[in-house]
């Protein structure tokens, strides 16, 4: 009586149908009648006398294993996913190969430290690299405390009400605002109203605004991931909210916060559009030495060279792109290293 049920369940699951010595044809269209009855052999064994499994409510006579077809779909899906991955990888590889073919020969120490020139073979990225480093450091200085502070307030202090949700929703929306819009804001607010001029300071503040939403959201996620039991334990021992945050939550959340911050900074260093608006220059033949100096940054220097008529400048642009890529890669590497270091310790 229960025999057909067992076999029927086995048919779709096992790669090869168990025939139990019976002719295989019997399993092409098994009867599922047994499923509806509570019995030890059925899949309902654990909840006998309860409602039947939803799958069992379907018309049993319509079930067809179609093993070959389903396996084909399964492998086709895997292949599609592989293709999706490969398209990204191939395009990236093509881009990298193209850049390296054009630029690798122009890569040299004198090119990295040199000053811009109207002769492509003399042109260097020294001021642009220094400008990018300045902008990066200043942006981190502004964005990190603001972003992490916001995240802590939202996660640990803010009452869970409409206002908090409104703020969170706005932050999430800000993350999707095109970077050029931040440039327009920076031009009006920092360059003109606060009269910072076309200085490193104005650029860093603009980029800090641009990456703040990303840092806030990443930090919030990291803080959320800290188990609630840790907080409750600290409170139970009489710790204040600040002590709990300082000694328990931040140390655990820090790797996540760092990863988010460094990835956000990587975005800032690759931006050209907003810094052009807030005043990055085309030609700078000096290394900026303080935050009020005028500047240029790598992405803009690359953009500037690519738009020249001479192909030799396109090669310098490719070489500068390699330097920028190396900078971005090392920043990602630092993010991974920091995460691993702190994760192991905690």
């Amino acid at each position: 009586m229960t025999e057909p049920v067992k076999d029927a369940v086995a048919v779709p699951a096992a790669p090869t149908p168990r025939t139990n010595g019976r002719p295989a044809t019997q399993f092409v269209r098994p009867t599922f009648a047994g499923l509806q009855r509570p019995s030890n052999g059925s899949i309902n064994a654990d909840e006998s006398n309860s409602a039947p499994h939803p799958a069992a409510q379907r018309d049993p006579s319509r079930f067809a294993p179609r093993v070959a077809q389903r396996r084909f779909i399964a492998s086709a899906f895997a292949a599609l996913c592989l293709v999706a991955t490969l398209i990204g990888v191939v395009v990236l590889a093509a881009l990298l190969i193209d850049i390296f073919r054009d630029g690798a020969s122009r890569l040299s120490w004198s090119m990295i430290t040199g000053f811009p020139s109207r002769f492509a073979d003399r042109a260097g990225i020294g001021p642009a690299l220094a400008g990018s480093a300045w902008v990066l450091a200043l942006t981190a200085l502004f964005a990190f405390p603001l972003g992490v502070g916001t995240a802590i307030w939202l996660e640990e202090y803010a009452p869970n009400n409409r206002w908090r949700r409104l703020i969170e929703m706005n932050i999430a929306n800000l993350a999707g605002v095109p970077s050029i819009v931040y440039g327009i804001l920076g031009l009006a607010l920092f360059v003109r109203v606060m009269s910072l001029g076309r200085s490193l300071m104005a650029a860093a503040l603009t980029l800090a605004l641009l990456i703040l939403p990303v840092i806030i959201i990443a930090s919030q996620e990291a803080i959320k991931a800290v188990p609630r039991t840790i907080r409750l334990g600290a409170y139970a021992l009489g710790a204040t909210r600040w002590e709990t945050i300082k000694h328990q939550i931040l140390p655990v959340a820090l790797p996540g916060i760092m990863t988010g911050t460094i990835l956000a900074l990587s975005r800032a260093i690759g931006e050209a559009a907003p810094v052009i608006l807030v005043g990055a220059l085309g030609f700078v033949a000096f290394i900026p030495t303080n935050p009020s100096d005028q500047y240029t940054v790598l992405p803009f220097q690359i953009f500037n060279w690519v738009s020249r008529p001479q192909t030799a400048f396109h090669e310098v642009a490719a070489a500068a792109s390699i330097v920028l890529l190396a900078l971005l890669l090392s920043m990602s590497a630092i993010a991974i290293w920091l995460r691993n270091k702190y994760t192991r310790r905690s």
Binding site: P116, R118, R198, G279, A280, G282, F283, A285, N304, R308
Partner: peptide
């Protein structure tokens, strides 16, 4: 006009005996 002014700024910087910073935006 940028390429012309850039050429001038570059050569001016080389020829200058004192510190000069010529910046060019576009």
């Amino acid at each position: 006009v940028y390429p012309i002014t850039e050429a001038m700024a570059e050569e001016f910087g080389i020829a200058a005996t004192e510190k000069v910073n010529v910046t060019i935006a576009t």
